[in-house]
Design a binder for these strands. Structure first.
Lengths: 209, 209
DNA sequence: CAAAAATCGTGAGTGATTTCACAAAGTCAG
DNA sequence: CTGACTTTGTGAAATCACTCACGATTTTTG
C-alpha cells in the first residue's frame, strides 16, 4: 500500500503495456523472457524495464531472466485484472462508436457497460453489445460506474463533466479538446487527437532525427 | 534554428495546446491575457507557461501580461500554421472513419489527403471529402505525404509500416497496440487507447487524490 | 565440475522538467 | 505624478525519470 504509493508515475503508465506483452508471450507458450527481449518488443530500454520491475521486488532470477507465468500472474494481481472496472461512454459519434466496437475486454479489465447520446435516433439501439441511452437519463441509467469516457462535442464537455462528477465518477478519459474543470478528487486524463498530430508535425520539422 | 533545437520536448508538446487556446481568446475579442488566466484555461501551472514562452524570448510585458494578437501571430509562425502538412490515413475502420469525419482543419495545419483500406467495399468512395484507395495501391497513390496515421488491425501494423517507411514517410501516429519497428530516422508517436484506459483505472485504485 | 556466458538488481550519475520565489518593470487609479 | 498593484522572466532548488555500469548469482557448455 505505502509501497505502491512510491511507484513513479512513469512506471505506472507502462504497466498495462508490459502486461499485454507478457500475456502475448504466455499465449505463445514462452516460458522465460529477459529484459533485453522484452525491451525489443515494447521499445523501452532494458534497464528501465528492470528498474520498473524492481519497484515490485525481485521478480527475476539472475542469469535466467523472468519466468513468464510468474510475471503474468504477478501483473494480473497488481493491475487488478481479475476485477473489472465498469465504464460509461458519453457521446456516440464517430469516435464513441469506434470505442464501442473496439473489444476492450481482450487483455483488459475495463468494460463499457452503458453509452449515452443526445440524438434521439441513436438512443434505444446498441453497438457492440452496449445499450445506448439518452443523455437526459444520465443520472438514472449510469448506475455507479466510476470511470467515464468523454467523446462529445467540446461545447458540451464541461456541462456533462459536472453531471458526471455530481454522480460520483472518479476518473474521466477526456477525448474532447476542451480542458475540463473538476474537483481535486477526480482524475482526468486528456487525449487530444489534434494536438497529437500537430505535435508530431512540429517534431518532424524542428527536431530532425 | 539552433535556438529551436534547445526547446525542451515537454514544452514542444504543449505548443499546439497553447495555440488553440490563444486562438479562442482572439476569436472572443480578448486583447490581453496573463499566464495566470491561461493557466486556468489549459490546466498547466502558470510558471510553466511563462517558462515555456520564455524559450522564444520575451513575449510578454511585465505588469500587463501577453498581447493576444501578438502571441497568436507568433505561435502561428512557430507552429507553421500557414504551411499545411499532408497526412495519409491507413485503415478505414471505426477509428479511421472517426478521423476522416473529424475536422482537423479547424485551428490546424494538418490535413488528411488520402485514405487506404484493405476491404474492397470501402474503396472508391470518400469520407469527409477524403478519397479511399485500396491498400494494394499504397505506393502509387500516396504521393509524398510525410506523415501517416495508422488505424489498422495490429497484425497488419508492421507490414504496412515497412511499406510506409520505404515510401519515405518520416512520421507515424500509431493507434494500434503493436509496437512497430522503424529506422532511427522515422519518428513514431504511440497512442494506445486500451493502455490509456487501463492506466487511468490503475491510477484511480493506487494513487488516491 | 570448471570456466564462460547470461542476466538481474541497483548505486550512482546524468539529464530533463517543474516549481518556487522574487527583483524588475510595467500598469492603473486617483 | 505617486504609490499600490500586477505580472513577467528567470536564477536556483526541487523533483522526477532515465541510463550506465558492475557485482552477484545463476545457467549453460564442454
Amino acid at each position: 500500500m505505502d509501497e505502491e504509493t512510491k511507484i513513479p508515475q512513469a512506471t505506472a503508465k507502462r504497466l498495462p503495456l508490459y502486461y499485454r506483452f507478457i500475456n502475448n508471450l504466455y499465449l505463445q507458450g514462452k516460458k522465460r523472457v529477459s529484459s533485453k527481449e522484452l525491451s525489443e518488443a515494447v521499445k523501452v530500454d532494458s534497464a528501465t524495464i528492470r528498474r520498473d520491475f524492481s519497484y515490485f521486488g525481485a521478480l527475476g532470477k539472475k542469469g535466467y531472466g523472468y519466468n513468464v507465468e510468474y510475471l503474468l500472474s504477478f501483473f494480473r494481481k497488481t493491475l487488478d485484472q481479475d476485477e473489472t472496472t465498469e465504464v460509461a461512454l458519453i457521446g456516440v459519434g464517430n469516435l464513441g462508436t469506434a470505442f464501442l466496437n473496439y473489444n476492450f475486454m481482450k487483455n483488459n479489465n475495463t468494460k463499457i457497460v452503458v453509452a449515452f447520446d443526445a440524438q434521439k435516433e441513436r438512443v434505444g439501439g446498441e453497438i457492440g453489445g452496449v445499450p445506448i441511452e439518452h443523455i437526459d437519463n444520465l443520472e438514472e441509467k449510469m448506475g455507479n460506474v466510476s470511470v467515464a469516457i468523454l467523446t462529445v462535442p467540446s461545447q458540451a464537455a464541461q456541462g456533462i463533466t459536472d453531471r458526471l462528477v455530481a454522480k460520483g465518477v472518479s476518473g474521466i478519459l477526456n477525448f474532447t479538446p476542451a480542458r475540463i474543470t473538476v474537483p481535486s478528487t477526480v482524475r482526468v486524463h486528456h487525449i487530444d487527437l489534434s494536438v497529437e498530430l500537430q505535435s508530431l508535425a512540429y517534431f518532424l520539422k524542428h527536431y530532425p532525427l
